[in-house]
């Protein structure tokens, strides 16, 4: 099934931040996605030229529906089109669900530490939603914490929904809300010590964001004593 491109039609778009938006696609034949997986999206120009990129699923559970959240990369080929140009009724192609490693399933037991940078929240938001929708027993078996690094409060994806669903710590890198105790700065060892689960044998840590962010955070986690085999990463791109 993953070998095949499905025709997808846009059924909804919602602004998420000034630079990002959520896109809902109706995709006949698409089923069985696990939180953390992604799809490949392929666009075709009228002359047949094609471009494809990967996008994480922002939510799972509804078959034949694909929910994406795309951040505009300035001067990018695909993301500005998806954020600024795309409208309801437009068509594209989708392949997936893809990826079997950077995932969380409601039957997984044990605590989970999520660390997101910017749009890297997308697959982690799918996990938070899957856990919320699985009910209180699952939530009790799998405690979640989320450390979410964003440039400013306005750059946060899904802020209210995430705050309602998970133990969430914000780390602002450029500008904080008024009166915020932590000054704006990049994530550091002190943030991890204060706001994440300590290393343990049953903990899973999932880190997602731009490549440079993931490199920094994964390095800090190892310095803090986490077992590298229990740290899963997804790198979205950008200079490393």
């Amino acid at each position: 099934m993953t070998e095949q491109w499905h025709v997808a039609q846009v059924v909804g778009t919602t602004p998420v931040t000034a630079s990002a938006r959520a896109v809902t696609l109706a995709v006949p034949g698409f089923a069985g996605a696990v939180a953390g997986q992604h799809v490949d999206v392929r666009l075709t120009a009228p002359d047949g030229y094609q471009a494809a990129r990967s996008y994480s699923l922002a939510a799972v559970g509804a078959d034949e529906r694909v929910e994406l959240a795309v951040d505009r990369v300035p001067d990018g080929e695909v993301s500005p089109y998806l954020v600024d140009e795309l409208r309801v009724g437009d068509r594209m192609e989708v392949r997936g669900p893809l990826g079997g490693w950077f995932v969380w399933r409601p039957e997984d037991v044990g605590p989970v530490q999520l660390v997101a940078g910017g749009s890297g929240i997308v697959p982690l938001a799918a996990m938070v939603r899957a856990r919320r929708d699985a009910g209180p027993e699952v939530a009790a078996r799998a405690p979640f914490r989320l450390l979410y690094s964003v440039r400013t409060p306005q750059d946060a994806f899904f802020a209210d929904e995430l705050e309602a669903a998970v133990d969430l710590t914000w780390a602002y890198t450029r500008r904080t809300p008024p009166g915020w105790p932590r000054p704006a700065r990049r994530l550091d060892a002190a943030d991890l010590a204060a706001s994440t689960f300590a290393p343990s044998d049953d903990l899973t840590v999932l880190v997602c964001g731009p490549t440079a962010f993931v490199e920094t955070v994964a390095g800090l986690l190892l310095e803090a004593g986490h077992d590298p085999a229990r740290v899963k990463t997804e790198r979205f791109g950008g200079a490393s």
Binding site: T44, A45, G48, A239, S240
Partner: peptide
């Protein structure tokens, strides 16, 4: 393939053909 309305794409002039579904980058992801 279905055509995506309003999508032009950014064709990098490449000296050589790329494998299907690939695009050129100057970075090293």
């Amino acid at each position: 393939a279905v055509v995506s309305r309003g999508f032009g794409g950014r064709r990098e002039p490449t000296e050589k053909p790329l494998p299907p579904g690939q695009f050129l980058t100057e970075d090293f992801p």
